[in-house]
Design a protein around this nucleic acid. Sequence first.
DNA 1: ATGGGGCTGCTTTTT
DNA 2: GCAGCCCCAT
Length: 814
Amino acid sequence: MAEQMKQTAASSLAERYFAAKHHLFDTLYQSMNEKQREAVYTVNGPLLVLAGAGTGKTTVLVNRIAHIIRYGNAYYDDTVPNGLTEANVSALEQSASVMSGEELGQLCESFSSNPCPPWAILTITFTNKAANEMKERLSKVIGEKSADIWAGTFHSICVRILRKYGERIGYRSGFTIYDTDDVKKVILECMKQLNIDDKQLQPRTVMNTISRAKDKLQTPEDFMNEVGSDLRLSQIASIYELYQKQLFDANALDFDDIIMQTVALLKAEEEVRSYYQNRFKYVCVDEYQDTNHAQFMLTGLLSGKYRNLMVVGDDDQSIYKFRGATIENILHFDDTYSDAHIIRLEQNYRSTTNILNAANSVIRNNFGRRGKELWSNAGEGEKITIRKLDNQNEEARYIINKIMDQVIREKRKYSDFAVLYRVNAQSSYLENIFAKSGIPYRLLGGTRFYERKEVKDIIAYLCVINNPSDNLRLKRIINEPKRKIGETTLTALENIAAYEDVTILDAMRNAENYPTLAKSITKLHDFAYMIDALTEISKTEKLSVLFQRVLELTGYMKMLEAAGITEIDRVQNVKELVSNAVAYEEANEDATLSGFLEEVALVSDIDNYDENADAVVLMTIHSAKGLEFPVVFLPGMEEGLFPSIQSAMNPEELEEERRLAYVAITRAKTRLYALHTRERLIYGKTNFNQKSRFLEEIPEEYTNIEIPKSIRQQAAEAEAAANGGTVTAPGDRKKKVTMSKEFFRESDLSAGVGRTQSYDRFTAGDVVSHFTFGRGVILSVREMGADILYEIAFDTVGTKKLMATYAKLRKFDE
DNA sequence: ATGGGGCTGCTTTTT
DNA sequence: GCAGCCCCAT
């Protein structure tokens, strides 16, 4: 009897101890909601976090990692300390309300259970930007220790593994990474060799098919066995085989190889596998909805020993199916990991309820979801503006007017605004009009920096220096600048190289031994020796010195400079490349050529997007994933464009488009404009598109459909206000428009920004000052309709062409 | 070997 | 609309 009493007392003491412990942790993380905390505490075993847009998943990831390092499995640990007394427990119970955050943190350390060193944690993200953000936030929370955490993209982590152990599956160090451009060239070459007509079988299709095969970890043999008697597929299979051989011979990997070969390495080499499996006690994967099968296998392998695998994703934001992402990874995570814990984050901290309700109503039309409804207590907010414009230029002007209006009236920053569109092709007209407006903007996407010819050329030189087998890159630069080494000589070189089983560069060094090269011996020797000399320099000198020498010795800079003004942009780009190399050198103590080339191969434009720059940002919806903006414009919400014409037939693709629409809507915090036009010029054709079905899916209660005033109405107003000035709408028809006394107004068809009643006229040579660009000198003046196009050399931003009505120039006075 | 001119064909999203 | 390709003339 007495024994029993004692036990009850002990267990209730233990219960109180656990309750107090939990309460202390809950207080420590009181800025988070219950679900978020649950995710932080759940450190052991497979964990799936379904995190809707804006639900604070990065916060969860960062805090969970910090928690693992400091406290381990403290929260769910069920051991009761020895000699627990009533006094201990009451002390704990009272601590939460009296302690500071720091003291609480200290106290909680006493509950630690298997805390984990930072080097045993791996976090995988999708973009470098996300990886950097993760590292930054981690270093804020846990300080220096964060440097030891492995945080990177799938590709950067795999490259790191391959650099270390790739030799075990036949890759030499210093391997090259081929981008889509390179891949296409190799594919075309393979097709030519195999006598497959590139008109009957599109290289694009071949590339995609091979890429999908690699996502599924299919080797050329696997693929060959699977295709059966299908002619097209067996053609692709033979291309795949040859392609893979060519890449391997060039010591090169494409993007898909980086993942696939790492998986192959981990599967084949027990020693390597157990090295990483022992090392990584905790593995976290962000954006899990965008992973493919190979990446699924990879995370499974890396976390294989401890099985502490956390994946975070949102099935509703899966928008990369087209490049092999399988939403099944997230939909079936709990099939594979039957003991998986699942947590849903549904409280949104980003947007107003009107925006969220609109997003929810759109995504609800998709089947095959895990089901999730975002909510927020940010208040109802403004309704979504839906507006029809006449054409894409009016649409762009509408956007500019709204931005200028809100910058002036609401004191918003330019960086509060984002213009998000479906296809990059939309960027050109937007950019044109933005450029004229004088509004600072940044355009992401389009031709990327590292895809520019001159940049790729210089990189190609460095690749050849780094990897002499890289024949593709060698061919790119062998005659750039012109060295009079043409098609004939090159073919001869390739034949010799293949026959002798040496590199093209070797064949060049030994040119004198081959009659077919007789005419070019000196030219070939010169080139090979130049590469040799640069290779020597690369071994002893710093990266920045190597860069200078490459520009000099190859004659590349001279070639650009000789071309004069027409190539001035290219000179700039090359210089920017050099400064990137210098920056890389400064940021990395052990800066190597391989390392730099690797970074170059794996960065994207979005990684360089600087959130601090005060500029409107223009980009595709895909690039905007993970970002948020107070005000978002969605131009081109039209059938045929969004959803795109090619998805209309296919229900699955249509669902992906709808998810993309969901991503687009949920980028906005407080204000959203969805725009569509009567006619649209795109890809050189004018289309008359219906309003997008996604807009029809938003209930009226959340939207405000703006009706433009009719032209007649405007004319009447103009009559009434006799003090108005005459302006001409860009493009055409003179009409009278009232100019308001206000700084500017939005008038529906004319749409101009800052059309003051009159503006000064300048002539070439005048010194002017601009709202954002500052001081500049007028270079040229051109009448354009009723407007004037000024070319102005600004002190800070270089030469720009601005329309007088938008630029709002003032005479410069000291 | 090179450079220009004209033509075709392709345009969804990108680590 | 435009990039990249091919063919032809130098």
